[in-house]
Design a protein around this nucleic acid. Sequence first.
DNA 1: TATGAATGAGTATTCATTCAT
DNA 2: AATGAATGAATACTCATTCAT
Lengths: 199, 199, 199, 199
Amino acid sequence: MPDRPKPRKTPVQSRSRATCDAILEAAARILEVGGLTALTTNEVARRAGVSIGSLYQYFPDKQAILAELIRNMRAEMQADFSDASQRALATPNLGEAIDILIAASLRHHLNRPVLAERLEEAERDLPLDAETARLKSALRDSVASVLARHGIPMPDQTAFDLIAIAQGLSDAAIRAGERDFAALQNRLHRAVSGYLSAE
Amino acid sequence: MPDRPKPRKTPVQSRSRATCDAILEAAARILEVGGLTALTTNEVARRAGVSIGSLYQYFPDKQAILAELIRNMRAEMQADFSDASQRALATPNLGEAIDILIAASLRHHLNRPVLAERLEEAERDLPLDAETARLKSALRDSVASVLARHGIPMPDQTAFDLIAIAQGLSDAAIRAGERDFAALQNRLHRAVSGYLSAE
Amino acid sequence: MPDRPKPRKTPVQSRSRATCDAILEAAARILEVGGLTALTTNEVARRAGVSIGSLYQYFPDKQAILAELIRNMRAEMQADFSDASQRALATPNLGEAIDILIAASLRHHLNRPVLAERLEEAERDLPLDAETARLKSALRDSVASVLARHGIPMPDQTAFDLIAIAQGLSDAAIRAGERDFAALQNRLHRAVSGYLSAE
Amino acid sequence: MPDRPKPRKTPVQSRSRATCDAILEAAARILEVGGLTALTTNEVARRAGVSIGSLYQYFPDKQAILAELIRNMRAEMQADFSDASQRALATPNLGEAIDILIAASLRHHLNRPVLAERLEEAERDLPLDAETARLKSALRDSVASVLARHGIPMPDQTAFDLIAIAQGLSDAAIRAGERDFAALQNRLHRAVSGYLSAE
DNA sequence: TATGAATGAGTATTCATTCAT
DNA sequence: AATGAATGAATACTCATTCAT
């Protein structure tokens, strides 16, 4: 992400980035504290310091706010994984490759663990927009390509399983209050490499 | 029901039980079909064939219905796991022990997969009542006792991880539409035994 | 209407007639005073002396209130016209037949002229429900049957024109503040009999 | 437009006129397509290609736009009727005079039938401004003068009735989808001449 | 003068919960 | 105990209008 050479901001933006970001950030904070049920449009507007009318100038409806939060999360995640899988593809050592991918996965939770989980939960109930679905399958492809590189059979199915396993373990640990990310990384590594070497 | 010769109940109690069960079953069915958003107290009462007033005589509020559904699910699960762990403790073969536990885990999803998932989702947002928390840790203990029996180090932490891994993989697979439970059992076995043999 | 022999009220009614009628009457009064723009569900509830929640127990949405007011108006009108056309069919005198029909038409406006007009206006913008459409065409048929009885050619088209003419004249006169209904009846008779004898 | 050699206007005035006309035309088009409920100030501004701020520099509020559309319609109509009544006054033949007036009335609907009806509908709910009221009574006077010329008694009242009758019939027919204006003209002639010869 | 982002009162509607019968 | 009519706070969303730039 830091090494993307593209322009960060175009000078002219029809959407006022600041207001839009304030709304998204307010929504994120509300999600973190009170979950989906606390996420009301009026409260988002209030916390963002904008009027309810402004909120609806930037988002067609409440779902759109959630959808954009999810899309942003997925985009960030996919960018990180895409980058990680590039590096993972470069090493002939499978264990090292796994570590690279797991680190990417954990980075996703590290920043705002509760938010990440709430968004994933919300994502399950929402109909995914095309863009988000694309990002999700791109993520799976990134992992699968690394697996294929190391001769793992059925890389797509295996990628699916590994992502599910890693996610399940991360979520449970974080939900249980785990904050020792180094230890968690070891457990994740154990789960993933175990799955790969078993059978 | 009245002519069952088993443990006797006073007519009043049995009527209460029947009404109570009707409400819980109605709530379960609504959850399966329409999810949490479709679960309204009026609809539950209607589907249960009781008045909304009666519903509130059996449950103090809406959350209580959900809480009881979750508690029942956990209780069933724990009973099953407790039984499975008894059998798993009897075998000296770790692979076989794992299979017994995984079969118990899958049984939980097999019966009413959608309901199980919806309840787990709901559970994440609800503050767990003491009883449910106890059941969850009892389940973990059941698994841990089997692990200890086979000399696995840190059985509690390992049980936690294995449950999280199995749950993550089951949920994702079922959500993705997987219906080949035999194949899924294999994948679960691979994940669990892999984790145990790794490191 | 007074001579309908059917039971006025069934003893058991799932809809509480009183509340339902209070809502309809409140809506009618608001329409009379402030027109369609003043007709808000909260105001209807307030004026009916019921809570907004009760309003929605009797009517699925705002349109349904308007639709029922229109349907009631049409039903009353059609009953009156059906009765009038029976009597009009019995006389061999066309002028007398016309008078009978015009009297029925004016009775419709006599009671609550402003409401009648507002409802007709609203009807134009609303998609008619099947029942209301049926009542409207039944009214046209009543008139057409009288015309056919007196050998008027193209009775359907003529009925359409006469209804339009009578309605246009009544509405304009009442809107202009006319309250001399006897004089208005003469003008209507002149318009109708003139149309029939011309050409 | 800039190269029209006709009456000169200062640039500022002509710009104002152009903007003003663009707003009115946009409002007219929205009314035609979506009716009164679709007529929002923001949409009018958008379709007129001006900012919402500019719109409010030309019109004090939304009602004023509607009022001006109505006033323009009435003014056009009155001009047409004034002209028609000049010609109708010149002929000694009442039937011919009627035809001239009816043709004027139909021309009003012919151009933009839907708009004409929507504006008449809106007019009923709005308090007429003085100018519009003046135009309406001028129109009535034009008709009355023709009637007086042919010795019709009570020309004012009769003009009122004939206008109401013609309007009622035209509106209903056009609303019902009638597009055969020649046939409609005949029906209007029949209604008007019938009224005049009856009694 | 022109712009359009921002405002916020207002609107329809839902649903957990109460309470008179 | 049982009923279900009634409640009203809360929610998503609209749109006429203002005002800083």
